[in-house]
Computed example of a mutant assay.
Amino acid sequence: MTTSALDDEFQALEARAYDTFDTGRLTHAAALFGDALARKPDAIHLHYMKGLAHKYLGEWSQSLQHNLRAIALNGEFEQSMAWNAAIAATGLGDWDEARRQWERCGIRIPPGSGPIEGDFGLASIRLNPWHGGETVWARRIDPVRARLLNVPLPESGHRLFDIVLHDGAPTGRRRTGDGDRTAPVFNVLDTLAESDFDTYVAFVRCDSPEDLDDLTDATLPGIGYVEDWTRSVVHYCLRCSYGSPHAHHDAAPPDDWAIERNLGIGAQGKAAAVRLLTQWASRGPGRHVDGIETPRLERPARSQDRTWWRGEDEDDDEDDDSDGEPG
């Protein structure tokens, strides 16, 4: 085969790899970039793209390997390579490498060794962005790790206080509850540490916002946070979905009080959640607990039929699935 024919064949292979990546078929794309690297092992852009595909697959060892190779071949500092290497190192728990890459990026991190524990601000975190994309508030403890502050829906497979690994580039911004500030929205890439708080879905009735405040403000051992999902979760009827019988009423106007409330409770055990609800109901008339469920669901598998990492900018006024104030 002539040199020209070999070049044409390589260009076709490279184009297939990019096209496959651009349609979200990450496993196939990673394999095609690998085939291209077998022919041109020192191609910086191919190492970068293969590392990128493995990043979105959550395959941290391969992602780090190819990003570090791209960095070594490039010679000059390239921020995107350093960020992706730091993300992959964080996913692996290779804290020395992660710290080295953050320092190359000029990011100030707390001194020392091991996991980074700092305050990098509030963020809106999109859980399972390849499937639904519920957003919750979180506190960033390093450039790409965050602790969840809301009670996620059970369908997400996540829990209050999980520590998640998120992408480096925000996909939009979201207004905080006071409306005066905005926070970046990041896609979750992986879960690094599961909390010991389960999610309990409770259905209660009460006559006034003050009754509900008495519940959401209450503290007990084993209770992390009580969140009113009645307004923030609007895409389906939670009571029906969990089999709690009730009569449907016309939705109350936004400024009117709805007696039926759907709650998400982050608790370390059902006994703590039941004790909280029982004590609350006993403290005032017209307070009723209709049911409490403990759904345990697996996280949805990563989709490879769309480019979920290219999320559209969010409308600041839009309500997502779980959108309460941070716990």
Rank of each mutant, 00 (worst) to 15 (best):
L238Q: 03
D255R: 04
M49P: 06
D142V: 00
D162M: 04
G118V: 07
A5W: 01
W309N: 01
T135E: 10
P143E: 01
R306Q: 07
D217L: 14
L276P: 07
E314T: 05
M49N: 15
G327M: 06
S61F: 13
A301P: 05
A252S: 09
A31C: 12
N150W: 04
N150E: 09
D94E: 14
V201T: 09
A258N: 13
K40L: 14
L212T: 12
L68M: 11
L263P: 08
E117M: 13
A258H: 10
D213C: 14
R310T: 00
D162H: 06
T199H: 11
L127E: 00
D256L: 09
L220M: 11
N67I: 00
G324V: 00
Q11D: 14
T90G: 13
A251Y: 07
S322W: 13
T219Q: 14
R140E: 03
V234M: 13
A82V: 07
G121Y: 07
A29Y: 03
P41C: 11
G311Y: 07
R299G: 00
S156V: 02
T278A: 11
R145M: 13
D305H: 13
E14L: 15
A202T: 05
A30Q: 06
E134V: 11
N150Y: 02
G284V: 00
D96P: 10
N262Q: 13
G179P: 06
A202F: 11
D8C: 12
A38L: 14
L32V: 09
R231Y: 12
A53V: 11
A38E: 13
E210T: 13
E325S: 06
Y225D: 04
E260H: 07
W257P: 05
P115Q: 13
F77A: 09
D162F: 05
P41Q: 09
D178H: 03
R175F: 02
R174T: 07
Q304T: 04
A193V: 06
R181F: 02
T3I: 12
L160Y: 15
L160T: 00
E59C: 04
E293W: 08
R104C: 00
E14C: 15
D35S: 14
A193D: 08
I259N: 09
V188K: 00
G93A: 08
T3Q: 15
D7L: 08
A271M: 12
G118I: 09
R99V: 04
R147K: 14
R175N: 10
W309P: 06
A123Q: 02
Q101Y: 02
A202L: 10
N74C: 11
D190F: 05
N150P: 05
E293V: 00
S124R: 10
E325F: 13
L46H: 10
G243D: 03
D22T: 09
T20P: 05
D35I: 08
D213H: 14
T2L: 14
E260N: 00
W137P: 08
R100Y: 10
L122N: 04
L122V: 01
G264M: 06
I107S: 02
D305W: 05
G266H: 10
E76N: 12
L127Q: 03
H54Y: 06
G177P: 05
P115A: 11
S282D: 10
F197I: 07
A146T: 10
H288Q: 12
Y200D: 03
